[in-house]
Simulated assay, not measured.
Amino acid sequence: MAAQKTLLLLCVGVSLAQDFITSEQFNKIEQRLRAAEETLKELKVENEALRIFTKALSEKHESMQAENEVKKIAFSAGFLASGSQQFGPFDVRKTLVYQKVFTNTGNAYNPDTGVFTAPLNGVYFFRFYAHSHGGKQMAVSLSKNDQTQCSVFNEKPASNGNASNGVVLSLQKGDKVYTELWSNSWVFDNESSFTSFSGFLLFPL
Rank of each mutant, 00 (worst) to 15 (best):
K44D: 14
E46G: 09
E46Y: 05
E48R: 14
R51D: 11
T54H: 08
A56T: 03
E59Y: 00
H61Q: 15
A66T: 08
A66R: 15
E67M: 12
E67T: 14
E69L: 05
K71T: 06
I73C: 01
G83W: 05
Q85H: 03
Q85M: 10
G88W: 03
P89V: 04
F90T: 15
F90I: 05
R93P: 01
K94I: 13
K94T: 10
T95M: 03
T95N: 09
Y98V: 07
Q99S: 13
Q99H: 03
K100I: 00
V101M: 12
F102L: 15
N107R: 11
A108R: 03
P111K: 10
T113Q: 05
G114P: 03
V115T: 10
V115E: 05
T117D: 01
A118P: 02
L120Y: 04
G122H: 10
G122K: 03
Y124E: 11
F126S: 03
F126I: 04
R127D: 03
F128N: 05
Y129L: 10
H131N: 10
S132H: 09
H133F: 01
H133K: 09
H133T: 05
G134N: 09
K136P: 06
A139W: 01
V140R: 02
S141T: 10
Q147R: 12
Q147D: 11
Q147K: 13
T148H: 11
T148D: 12
Q149K: 14
C150L: 13
C150G: 09
V152M: 02
F153A: 15
F153L: 15
K156C: 14
P157Y: 05
A158R: 12
N160P: 03
G161I: 02
G161L: 07
A163V: 04
N165P: 01
G166T: 08
G166V: 08
L171H: 08
K173S: 01
Y178V: 01
T179S: 05
